[in-house]
Design a protein around this nucleic acid. Sequence first.
RNA 1: GCCGAGAUAGCUCAGUGGUAGAGCGCGGCCCUGAAAAGGCCGGCGUGGGGGGUCCGAUUCCCUCUCUCGGCA
Length: 308
Amino acid sequence: MGKIKKRLIFLVGPTGIGKSAAAICLAKKINGEIISCDSMQVYRKMDIITSKALASERKIVKHHMLDILDPGKQYDVASYRKEALAVCDRIISKGKIPLFVGGSGLYYSILIDGLFERVGEDRLIRSKLNKEADKRGSSYLYKKLKTIDKQAAGKIHPNDTRRIIRALEVYLKTGKKISELQMERAGLGKEYEFKIFGLDMPRNALYEKVNNRVERMFDLGIIGEVRSLLRSKLSKTARSAIGINELKGFFKGNYSLEDTKELIKRNSRNYAKRQLTWFRKDQRIKWIKINPGDSSFQIAKKIWKKLS
RNA sequence: GCCGAGAUAGCUCAGUGGUAGAGCGCGGCCCUGAAAAGGCCGGCGUGGGGGGUCCGAUUCCCUCUCUCGGCA
């Protein structure tokens, strides 16, 4: 028979549902270490705004892929995958179980299913294409894409400028179609065996939790955190965290504190909804229905029961 | 109390004598190097109550109620 595969556990779900706390309980129970699967928690100095695990919590269970770079630096899925997998194997070699926890859908699926490597972002090409899009409109670029890679164009909407540009970028750099390269992806299936759990609760209750969490961020001092973040230049990835732009507008005096809070709440709710859309289609996920009042201990127990 | 403005989708508001839209919200979806990003689809409605004119009223007229300004 086949060789023994390395075991992994994933815990995904929308923002604010309680993944992190439940993960700590679970990790303790199974002698695991947590690997964050979050595109924003990788940044230092973005603690409150990303609801990062506290130092005290990190003492209970070791967390990885947090605070690995400064907010001025750009980050992307490819680096995430590479670094996260390295950490993952290190944990396994210690005889512990890696527990991936997070809500960044793309990071999650690229991690599991792989990506075509070798063609990273090319800032020069991108800025050229962006200028072209501004000047002639994205439909111009779309037509161009259609002539070189019909299949990719078929998958991308004419208004989705970013994806049109990426497809063109790949072609300009390699002379190959992105639609062909995209077929080269190797997932974790061969080497690893994984169980994936998703947390879900009734929408209304989830939104209430999200709203409350935003309120808590303000209590904890998100305003000060973002104010000091804005003192230096943020990378385009770091500055896309929910809360940054909204607070920037507040500092400029564009709207009141109350309106700022509402804005951040709304954007967080919309994000949670998009996350659910992303995870819902993944048939491998075993969904754990939780109630708004469930403690992280109870949630961990529900997962634990499905583990064996 | 008087004068004026208004009452249309969950919210803010357009518009029209032939039963109504937009933005946001809300719901659904897409996603392979920015992903907490970006993009797509969906109107979810007793048009404040009552009466009148008209073939036909959300639109015109009267009246009532309420809201907001101004004057007392």
